[in-house]
Design a binder for these strands. Structure first.
Length: 300
DNA sequence: GACTCGTGGTT
DNA sequence: TAACCAAGAGT
């Protein structure tokens, strides 16, 4: 039987092969581990901020076991200000699991990947597709927007419909593993550089002729919008400030130094406690505070 | 399903 | 300038 790649997917793939951005983790020779690291870092964080951190990270920890052997403090310092530092802890934990339970080899099976810390539906499929060239429907915010417009003719993606979203993307993928992986990358790239949230560049779009949204006259999105998360005054901001002090410190920090970053005492203490619970900070026996927590790799 | 978890560039 | 947005995951 003949199974022809849908025009939309085929055009997106051709466009991607012709002019994909030259991102560090797309270079030939990038290992599945490199892909996994990039996907962790790219969760909710822009490409431009991730790139330099990824480069240094892969030089220092080129394998899961190498990262597993590092201390939490070193991992958190290398993570720097990428944000959501719990991701760094989860990546560290995933590396430990991969090193000890999977022979230091990143799993290629989506279900196995999803069982690892910090790896959800998106990251598991991204690793399968971009790390191993497998056919896997990769659904992120970019892809959901591209599908919402090009396929459904809507102005934007509504709230996530996990199962339906996966099915929508699956329907676009050709049978071949290698070609499907390219289409997955292409859909993400389209959403990232052409079919963007605010001002889509439809005149540059390779699937312009196949786009249901364009055909419908680019109607505005009318569905519900998730309220943008505030930041000023939140626990996230306070935790960020506390962690910033600990990251910069070369020696254990006295409590007053942490007290100085936020005037609201109860909130400050609650946040510090949450950092301890998350393993992002630790209290020494003499009552001071340090980055990270105890790990096998920690020395002196 | 709603909420939480960082950070900083862009509009 | 305040709002918006950025390759999500866990609870």
């Amino acid at each position: 039987m003949t199974c022809v790649t849908p025009p939309l997917a085929g055009r997106a793939a051709d466009w991607f092969r012709a002019q994909a951005r030259d991102l560090p983790w797309r270079r030939p020779g990038t290992t599945p581990w490199g892909v996994l690291v990039s996907e962790f870092m790219l969760q909710q964080t822009p490409v431009a901020r991730v790139a330099p951190v990824w480069e240094r990270w892969m030089t220092e920890w080129p394998t899961p076991s190498a990262l597993a052997a590092a201390s939490r403090a070193d991992v958190l310092r290398a993570w720097g200000k990428l944000g959501y530092p719990r991701r760094a802890m989860r990546l560290h934990a995933a590396a430990e699991a991969i090193a000890s339970e999977h022979g230091d080899r990143v799993p290629s099976d989506v279900d196995v990947l999803e069982s690892l810390p910090g790896i959800g539906s998106y990251t598991a499929r991204a690793v399968a597709a971009f790390g191993y060239g497998r056919r896997a429907p990769v659904v992120d915010t970019n892809v959901r927007r591209v599908v919402a417009r090009a396929v459904h003719g809507a102005g934007d993606a509504g709230p996530a419909r996990t199962k339906a979203d996966l099915a929508d993307v699956d329907a676009l993928l050709p049978e071949s593993d290698a070609e499907a992986a390219v289409v997955s990358a292409a859909l993400m790239e389209l959403g990232a550089v052409v079919c963007t949230a605010r001002t889509p560049r439809c005149t540059l779009c390779p699937v312009h002729a196949d786009c249901a949204w364009v055909a419908a006259g680019r109607p505005e999105y009318t569905g519900p919008r998730r309220p943008v998360q505030g930041f000023a005054g939140t626990d996230r901001q306070v935790r960020g400030r506390l962690l910033d002090v600990l990251r910069a410190a070369e020696e254990p920090v006295e409590k007053p130094a942490l007290d100085a970053v936020w005037s609201d005492g109860p909130q400050r203490d609650r946040c510090l406690d949450s950092l301890l619970v998350d393993g992002l900070a630790e209290q020494t026996t003499d009552g001071r505070f340090v980055l990270g927590g105890t790990t096998p790799g920690a020395r002196d």
